[in-house]
Nucleic acid binder design. Structure first.
Lengths: 198, 198, 198, 198
DNA sequence: AATGAATGAGCCTTCATTCAT
DNA sequence: TATGAATGAAGGCTCATTCAT
């Protein structure tokens, strides 16, 4: 498979992401993908054998992008810890609200049916990575006096479970931007020294 | 429909709950239900026209029970606010860990594809009910000095989003009982007056 | 599956035999069967899951009939050994020449691809049964002076291999009734005492 | 088509023979051939338009070799008739038992579905050639007193039908080398003068 | 009410064949 | 000549739904 077909494979992955975003995992058929890509049935099978294979490749390309972006945005800057945490949460908010190419539902659906060993579960990796980033930011903030926190890892976990809760709520009940802000703010305020808070 | 067929309908709903619990929503076929109920294909159609109708009835019977249980357990007692909140959280934990007849995944799957108007969304009703209960309990606790909390509704919401996060995590990544305890404890500790906490 | 569906199953087997007879094994699709039976695709799958299952059932019903007929025709009579052998060969000739519902080719094709353990191979059973019948007839003939033969089992085997050769020749090259008679006669003449032969 | 492409065509035919030998006729796809030859899909079509054309060319090249070999081996020697017949039968036995590049099954399969006019049927040509060879050998043997036979052509035909029977048996039921020897011996013994036989 | 055989739409998958390079 | 990506026809199979009994 040369450069050309690598391009086409990427093209299919991009289109497929849109389809999975709209329909979840199990609702998607190879025909849906074929229609979205405007290629022939047989053509699709040259690149992917079934929706699972396709979905997992969509996910892994997605994950790569996410991790990179998140880590870059959160850690490589020279801004203050508070600013960086705010930036991180802004990214999370964007993700929670994202309509297009949002794989949250499909991912939850897939992994709830196809449980992975804890070790290999990419959802776990993503979650743990995020927790570690937040924890680090809080610790930095505590060091330079921006934050007050006795249990940074507990707080980081609390924050990320809230984010998970907001994600699934966004996809099932629906949620407003303001409500997200309010929830994230609630957690942040717990970190800010008392006098500044009032 | 006489009393006899009402009984049979309930029988089907009970069996169907087990199936949706195991397989999610979209993965369930009418044949799965028929097999679980050990009735005929045609027989099932006398009571339900398709899996969606069946699922929604399963859900609404579920919701009724849940609400009743939760409210009874949380509010009708004469225990202290702290004990009642602990009881409420114990119920939530049981729900998060429940293997049998757990409709979490099927429900998320269904409502993420079939978005409801905010008003009629039973998930929203359930969530809001829970928040109100927790809020009430916190307020009671603050009044009698058990808790310290400046923003009871914010804290209640935070708690319930964490619970949502734990639910979905339990179903996709998997989670240990200890991890659930730790998260719920983290929130509770924020409510306990400082001196008692150390 | 009640009596009614047993009838339908038999109906399908009958039609399928015709199809396998015309097209061999691998050339037959479920659609061919469906068309021949004038039933729906789904309907066929209620009875048989694939062409192999269908073919094997056709074969085993076939075999039962054959064995019974052959054994009855060859051994239960009170005619002379010569007459009975002649009868047996007439049956073989009929089989070799049969156009309709002749599974020779399909069977050869199937078993050449799906080799069976020698023990379970129905072709072997059929062949061995035939050899034993012929051997018995020859021995009877020798006893009452109709035949002369020093090696009845060798002669019986020779005869049945010739029959096999004639069967496959009939299906691939084509063969006339006279040619079959000539071959079978050639073997029979070896059994008849010299003086009668001229 | 230059010399170079003639070579490649022969290369494809050789590889294809192996494939038809393993899989029969209908089971072989153009992809099987392409893979065996390690050439491109399009490349194959430059030489052969479909599996049938390819198979027929494989067959005709096969036939040519066979005939030549057989005739050379059987008639051009200066050995005794008995030795030459033994040699011929040894060749037949080798063919019956041959695993690699054995087209028996594919050939039977092809010609049983695609009946040829008797005149052009290469199977018939092969069979008739073999009969004539055996007949000639027997006649020679009778002349010089090695054999006793009143009906050489009948005996030759009987022998070749047995060989056909052994071939198909070998491919469907399976047969041991000893069983083949026994059958061929049975026929040969009928040719040997009585006193020598005992 | 209840049964379960039957239907046919629709998705899955393979493969012969074409065609731009 | 040679390549291999692309196509679409065709067959496999499942499942919601109907209907005669």
């Amino acid at each position: 498979m040369g450069e050309k077909s690598a391009k086409k494979k990427q093209y299919i992955l991009d289109k497929a992401r849109g389809v999975f975003s709209e329909k979840g995992f199990k609702n998607v058929t190879m025909k849906d993908i074929v229609d979205a890509c405007e290629i022939s049935r047989g053509g699709l099978y040259l690149y992917f054998s079934n929706t699972e294979e396709l979905f997992l490749e969509v996910l892994s390309s997605e994950a790569r992008e996410d991790d990179d972006e998140a880590i870059d945005a959160a850690l490589s800057g020279d801004a203050s810890a508070g600013d960086m945490l705010a930036l991180f949460l802004k990214e999370q908010k964007k993700e929670i609200l994202r309509k297009k190419n949002n794989l949250t539902v499909a991912t939850y659906e897939y992994y709830s049916v196809n449980k992975q060993t804890t070790k290999n579960n990419p959802l776990k990796l993503q979650f743990d990575t995020a927790v570690r980033i937040v924890e680090k930011l809080i610790e930095n903030g505590v060091e330079n006096g921006e934050f007050v926190c006795e249990n940074p890892v507990g707080c980081a976990r609390n924050l990320m479970y809230v984010v998970e809760g907001l994600k699934i709520t966004s996809k099932t009940i629906g949620i407003s931007e303001e409500a997200i802000d309010r929830e994230l703010m609630y957690v942040l305020e717990g970190l800010v020294p008392f006098e500044l808070n009032s």
